[in-house]
Design a binder for these strands. Structure first.
Lengths: 236, 236
DNA sequence: AAGCCTATTAAGTACGACGTATTCAAGTGG
DNA sequence: CCACTTGAATACGTCGTACTTAATAGGCTT
């Protein structure tokens, strides 16, 4: 509720969220048109509010508004798939598996490089936090403490991304959090996390602490490979 | 006018562009507040238009609008730095060097992985286009044909990103285009492109055509290293 | 001095009007 | 019969005003 693509309270947020979810879920096919008045009536909102919502959807490149024709849904490959709200919508919608795969592949590309940079740029404080997160993962890796494990896992990857010193990487923290959360909440509710993965995280923290960029990168790449393989088993 | 973060024609676009540019350039510091009525007067626009603009800026997480207080500029590290318009604004603004570096680092992480995927997923047609682009680079790499070279360079990287089959990668085509354009338009207006880089592009096309994922990835990583080194020479 | 209450402020929402570009179709001429 | 022009219809774009709501500041009470 506090962060990102949260529903919010106002009328605007409600309409935006509902419409965005419907579009990304495919309820309105690319090419189909919506009329502002229709939307206004459907949500019992004024045209003012609907227009503002449309402008935001337009900025996400989900739709295009043209005179005399209406608000047309754009082709999928033109969407701003990096917008946090779009990501949330798509993860909640029908093509969630595809989205999860896309994001995991993106992670597998970005995180190793981020870890390598972090190894040379991380402050002592960040190193301490990273070690703490890794130890937290170890502590919670047994006995169905998936909640706590997830929390430390997210913290770990967020710290690495932040410590990389690259703002573009840092902004992917929310994405990683969404992916990890989604994974936990769907599949592995039964068995504990893979011990090998836990070990790898500890080793990454170690490598970062020692400033060994190559090792941090290689180890993180192994984590990524594991995540991709896990996805291959579970997703179509 | 046709693509991305282009000014457009309407009043809305004009106000949005001017305000977005001003904010990203640091004319309005994070924490400072803007009032809707002020903006409306400043641009001689109605409150309606300004409100729609503010909603879009809010969706980019550049600002936050709160009752009784106004529109406050958010901290830099909360901005949606992946929004094409934000990227364009920042590339046109004062911290252009920092932005160029961030984007190049992102490229260096993503493009090698994308090339590896492309090697196994590219269609024959895409392979042909890729080869054609590489050959175009060779043809235009001598004799101050920087315009043509840039065009083929952009095409090359765009094809690789598209052929990777990952929508997140594909959407970075515009970013790469912006970076390459920016690089050409600023520094190397004098000497021809590095012959080694040209050769690497040809070899990448070759590797993709042959389905050699590891080689395509490694070669693209070399291109990325070159781009980073080039940046070190020119930027602070 | 601490806490409550009220007035103020600026955004949120709504409605009605007119401007304007774009489309479609009828009509005209070749 | 086809191509072009012209006009009407349409749905977004912009505007102004009025009212509502939430957050803040400042004064009042205890």
């Amino acid at each position: 509720m506090t962060t990102d693509g949260s529903p919010g309270q106002g009328l605007h947020s409600r309409v935006l969220d509902t419409l965005g979810l419907a579009i990304t879920a495919g309820d309105h096919r690319p090419g189909s048109v919506l009329r502002t008045d229709e939307i206004a009536e459907r949500f019992d909102a004024s045209r003012t509010v609907v227009r503002e919502v449309v402008r935001v959807l337009e900025s996400m490149r989900l739709v295009e508004s043209r005179r005399r024709v209406g608000v047309t849904v754009r082709p999928t490959d033109e969407w701003n798939v990096y917008d946090p709200r779009v990501i949330v919508w798509r993860l909640a919608g029908t093509d969630r598996p595809r989205q999860l795969r896309s994001l995991t592949v993106l992670r597998s590309a970005v995180e190793p490089v981020a870890a390598g940079l972090a190894a040379t740029l991380a402050t002592p404080e960040q190193c301490a936090e990273l070690t703490e997160a890794a130890l937290g993962m170890v502590r919670t890796s047994r006995g169905h403490q998936l909640d706590g494990y997830l929390r430390h896992d997210i913290a770990f990857h967020r710290i690495v991304l932040n410590a990389s010193g690259n703002e573009m990487f840092a902004r992917l923290g929310d994405v990683v959090a969404a992916v990890l959360t989604g994974r936990t909440r769907h599949e592995v509710m039964f068995h504990d996390p893979d011990p090998a993965a836990v070990t790898l995280h500890v080793q990454v923290a170690e490598a970062v602490r020692e400033g060994d960029a190559a090792r941090a990168e290689a180890l993180t790449r192994q984590i990524a490979v594991g995540a991709l393989e896990e996805l291959d088993v579970l997703a179509p």
